[in-house]
Design a protein around this nucleic acid. Structure first.
Length: 644
RNA sequence: GCUGAUGUGGCUCAAUGGCAGAGCAGCUCAUUCGUAAUGAGCAGGUUGUCGGUUCGAUUCCGACCAUCAGCUCCA
């Protein structure tokens, strides 16, 4: 590599802003080594001009360089990527005749897709593979990078019978270099970057084996995918594994059953039943939604479940969304059960002529939609076929977009903050299957980006993931276990209003076509309930708890006092109940604790005499005797401030 | 939809080519109790559905349905 050096001075701006000048012919890697021997030895990875790169053979002038450690997000993904190659190396050593596909890092770890031929991979085999990986790491193989021509690469993989790799080489665009990484006897096609050597891998685990299609296409052969994860330190790996266990305990499907929130039945796959307690939670959430949307000047509407085919043809859904729609025939004509609420809102807008003075016009709708999701994709409340979008369709003038998106972002912030859910914003751009001109898409995409930058937030770009009618902003919230969920979206739509010939009269007296914004905060009420169930581990904040207080008389003798307290709570609209069963107090407490009731009140002789209650909170346990009035003041404050 | 696994009282889980079992929950009785399980008894099942093999199927085979882990898709 060094013989190809022909650049002038290397002038590098470091992460901290300082500038480093080095003599002619220095590679970035050498600079990196100078800056921090330790870090560079492990990672050999940095960001050059903002792009993540393998530093070992990059020669650049005037670049900005930041060296990554294994703790940085990108450094960690490099580590995981390398571990996936070690996995493949171990498999190559242990099993003959296997063929390799790809082995990338993912958000939480890595995987490698391997064609094991007729062999079924068992968990014992995972143990063997793990042991072999450990052995290889101990041998601390160096990782070397080199390039080859397309012909050489094809020849190499064809001779080895690596048919998947041949396909992968063929898929590499003409102008890109074909790069290989070699560790010991294992050579793999890979764009990198990778660690310098594998000895620095300290903590990894193989997690599961599943099937996955080559290149994600179900027409291709199903390969064996081995999942694993890796961290820079053992303690971080342990923490992650603990988190996985905790997540299992919090599974909303399990909690939903235990707490009596919702149920799924074979008779309606993917269409949840809400049970009395789940209904209280749901209605409380919806009451809050009304409160917020009232405050931000939304007008609530409700539109029909089933509408005529012609409507969906005009909207484009009949053509672009048909596979996901349930259809029916009424009086010999085709109808569709709505998969989206937007066409309904448009019909409402069409009822009257509109002036620019009315805009932005914000229609809110808790619209129940049905989508024919793949049976294999159904999952509790997270992926269902029938759900309620907390939808809104905003019609406005193009020049109002930025301000309106800013307003929506503020509303979102208010809602997510209430649940203590931090979030990240993602901007999705034009997909292949789209309607409208590229020019319109460009304008729309820029408007969204500008609004977010305008409120001082940042976003990442998700190329080609927009809806078919426009670009969108997705809000990914992060729960208490650090998992992310896509909830809110703001979709800009220059297409639908035009398709329906919507108009408003401008200040110039001329007719103009409004722009439409589709947006949801919760995303789906059902899924949001699933998310917060896991986020709070079923211990909902008092304002959301289906049962806020449970009163436990110590024995039958104190039932009357318990009931009088209960009656008082009911008058104050506090959700309470009395556990009058002839059981011991310990038993009743256990039961109330398992149901995650935020306040448990024990009443016996003392409390009856003093007009007090003995309070046991979900959070702090037994906090002793408190006057009834004081308790009422406290719980009302908890509820009214929606304390989390 | 695809690949693989699973399906046994309300729940969690045993067992078996020959009468299906436990714990919890439920019901009854006794206990009236002070901060995470009082005791005794009773009841509860066409083993997901349909078909096949068999003297006999819950067990073996097939189809279907659902669920789970993924792929894919997405709120």
């Amino acid at each position: 590599m060094s013989e190809s050096v022909k650049n002038e001075n290397v002038k590098i701006t470091l992460k901290d802003g300082s500038i480093l000048e080095t003599p002619k012919g220095t590679t970035v890697f050498e600079v990196a080594k100078q800056i921090s021997e330790g870090l560079a030895r492990n990672a050999a990875v940095g960001k050059i001009n903002g792009e993540i790169a393998d530093l070992r053979d990059e020669i650049l002038t005037d670049c900005e360089l930041s060296i990554l450690t294994l703790k940085d997000e990108e450094g960690l993904s490099t580590l995981r990527h390398t571990v996936s190659h070690i996995l493949a190396y171990a498999v190559q050593n242990l099993y003959k005749g296997v063929k390799f596909s790809i082995g990338p890092s993912t958000k939480d770890g890595f995987y490698y897709d391997i064609d094991f031929g007729d062999i079924t991979v068992t968990s014992e085999m995972l143990n063997d593979i793990y042991a072999e990986m450990k052995r290889l790491i101990k041998e601390n193989h160096k990782i070397e990078r080199y390039y080859s021509t397309r012909e050489e690469a094809l020849k190499y993989f064809t001779e080895k019978g690596e048919t998947y790799k041949v396909e992968l080489v063929n898929a590499i665009p003409e102008n890109e270099k074909i790069s290989f990484y070699k560790m010991g006897d294992f050579t793999d096609l890979c764009a990198g970057p990778h660690l310098l050597s594998i000895g620095s891998v300290k903590a990894f685990k193989l997690l599961s084996v599943t099937g996955a299609y080559f290149r994600g296409d179900s027409k291709n052969k199903m390969l064996t995918r081995i999942y694993g994860t890796a961290f820079s330190k053992q303690s971080e790996l342990d923490e992650y594994l603990t988190m996985l266990e905790e997540a299992k305990k919090r599974d909303h499907r399990k909690l939903g059953k235990e707490l009596g929130l919702f149920a799924l039945r074979d008779e309606a796959p993917g269409m949840p039943f809400f049970l009395p307690k789940g209904m209280i939670l749901r209605n409380t959430l919806i009451d809050y939604w009304h409160e917020v949307h009232n405050k931000w000047n939304y007008l609530e509407i409700s539109t029909p479940q089933i509408m005529r085919r012609s409507l969906w043809e005009t909207s484009g859904h009949w053509e672009h969304y048909h596979d996901d729609m349930y259809t029916t025939v009424i009086d010999g004509e085709d109808f569709a059960i709505k998969p989206m609420n937007c066409p309904g809102s448009i019909l409402v807008y069409e009822l009257d002529p509109h002036s620019y003075k009315e805009l932005p016009l914000r229609y809110g709708e808790l619209g129940r939609v049905h989508r024919n999701e793949l049976s294999g994709a159904l999952h509790g409340l997270f992926r269902v076929r029938c759900f309620t979008q907390d939808d809104a369709h905003i019609l406005l003038a193009p020049e109002q977009i930025k301000d309106e998106v800013v307003r929506i972002t503020k509303l979102f912030d208010e809602v997510y903050s209430l649940f203590k859910l931090p979030y990240k914003i993602e901007l999705s751009t034009m997909p292949e299957d789209h309607i409208g001109s590229e020019k319109d898409w460009e304008i729309a995409t820029k408007a969204l980006a500008d609004a977010i930058t305008g409120v001082g937030k940042t976003y990442t770009i998700n190329e080609g993931d927009g809806a078919f009618y426009g670009p969108k902003l997705d809000f990914h919230i992060k729960d208490s276990l650090g998992r992310t969920w896509q909830c809110g979206t703001i979709q800009l739509d220059y297409q639908l209003p035009g398709r329906f010939n919507l108009e408003y009269t401008g200040s110039d007296g001329e007719k103009h076509t409004p722009v439409m914004i589709h947006r949801v905060v919760f995303g789906s009420v059902e899924r949001f309930i699933g998310v917060i169930t896991e986020h709070f581990a079923g211990a909902f904040p008092t304002w959301l708890s289906p049962e806020q207080v449970r009163i436990l008389p110590v024995s039958d003798k104190f039932k009357d006092y318990a009931e009088s307290v209960n009656k008082r709570f009911k008058e104050l609209k506090i959700r309470s109940s009395c556990d009058n069963r002839p059981e011991k107090i310990g038993f009743k407490i256990r039961d109330a604790r398992l149901q995650k009731v935020p306040y448990i009140l024990v009443v016996g002789e003392k409390e009856t005499g003093n007009k007090t209650v003995s309070v046991r909170t979900r959070k702090d346990g037994d906090i002793g005797e408190v006057s009834l009035e004081k308790f009422i003041a406290d719980i009302l404050e908890d509820i009214n401030t929606k304390r989390v």
